[in-house]
């Protein structure tokens, strides 16, 4: 029981990170109908920028951890959002009127570009940071097993919840969110009503990238390492999460992220850690066989 509770906590924290990345996949798919394969690498870039800005802030003598954390978060979000905007502008927008596969191939190319860029500029070895946030709470203790809720886990989950609330508010209640939903449903019609669709799509990429940057910061806090390759596997997992939850659905992406995080953690805890990815992807396959549109996805309505 204690062991189970501990794994649940770990799984939720990991799932939050996946969920934050998955939202970027699902939003972009919803609005332009393409899978942004470079999104995982955007997350990796976010992690690196977090690391670099952390080191800079420490070296200029900042010591207050909450201040550093907030600054790192802001710098990572802003810089990564710029990456997201630029990628859309140079790699996807020129191909928007092209055949469906073209932007996807361009996205895969962009993924390699970003990965190799990080490898060349930052080196191929794993970059560790000393634990920034330590300590935690012992929730309860019995049978010689203490259920720990670390401060990092609290920060990860709380940040995710706060950002999701802000983000859901933007999508549901603001002009930008309305425009995004309108573009997702019928881009031509939205343009006819005066909505600048290019700009709306850019904003979608910017928001998605900013959320991925947050995930990158959380990953750095949680695992204490970044490397140029981390975007690949995390990106695939988050993409899986988005598909599992129903691609195009925002709550679905978060739910899928949590599901993948939990499956992975429980599988590693009870069965074998080597096969955790196999477990996550197997469940994806099983779910998609019985629910082809994912958990919360709606079947695509054929346009007349």
């Amino acid at each position: 029981m204690e062991y189970f509770a501990q794994q649940l906590i770990n799984g939720v924290a990991l799932g939050s990170i996946y969920g934050l990345i998955a939202i970027g996949y699902t939003m972009v798919y919803g609005i332009v109908g393409m899978i942004n394969f470079a999104h995982g690498d955007i997350f990796m870039i976010g992690g690196f920028i977090a690391l670099i800005s952390f080191l800079i802030f420490v070296s200029i003598g900042l010591t207050a951890v909450p201040v550093i954390l907030l600054l790192v978060l802001l710098v990572a979000m802003a810089t990564t959002a710029l990456y997201g905007w630029t990628i859309e502008r140079i790699a996807y927008r020129p191909l928007r009127q092209s055949f469906r596969l073209a932007p996807m191939l361009s996205a895969i190319g962009m993924s390699f570009v970003l990965g190799n860029f990080a490898q060349v500029s930052q080196g191929a070895q794993v970059k560790p940071v000393p634990p920034i946030i330590t300590g935690g709470l012992t929730l309860f203790e019995s049978n010689n097993f203490a259920v720990q809720l670390s401060n990092v886990q609290i920060i990860v989950v709380v940040t995710t919840v706060v950002l999701l609330t802000i983000f859901s508010f933007i999508v549901a209640r603001t002009r930008l969110g309305r425009d995004m939903r309108a573009c997702a449903q019928d881009q031509t019609m939205a343009a006819l009503l005066g909505v600048d669709t290019d700009r709306t799509i850019s904003m979608t990429f910017v928001i998605g990238a900013a959320l991925a940057a947050v995930a990158g910061v959380m990953y750095l806090l949680y695992y204490g390492v970044v490397d140029f390759y981390m975007g690949f596997i995390a990106g695939i997992k988050a993409f899986t999460a988005a598909v599992l939850g129903g691609i195009g659905s925002l709550p679905g992406a978060m739910l899928g992220g949590l599901a993948i995080g939990l499956i992975e953690t429980f599988w590693s805890a009870y069965f074998s850690i080597e096969y955790k990815d196999v477990a996550a992807f197997s469940i994806l396959i099983v779910v998609l066989i019985f629910m082809p549109t994912g958990i919360l996805g709606r079947p695509e309505i054929e346009k007349v």
């Binding site: 019928d186 031509t188 006819l192 005066g194």
Partner: peptide, 23 residues
Amino acid sequence: DYRISKLAKVARTFQNIRLFAGM
């Protein structure tokens, strides 16, 4: 694109209705 609506202020409807059905 959107400038037709924004600048020239022309609006149109369609033969087959194109509302944002989910909104």
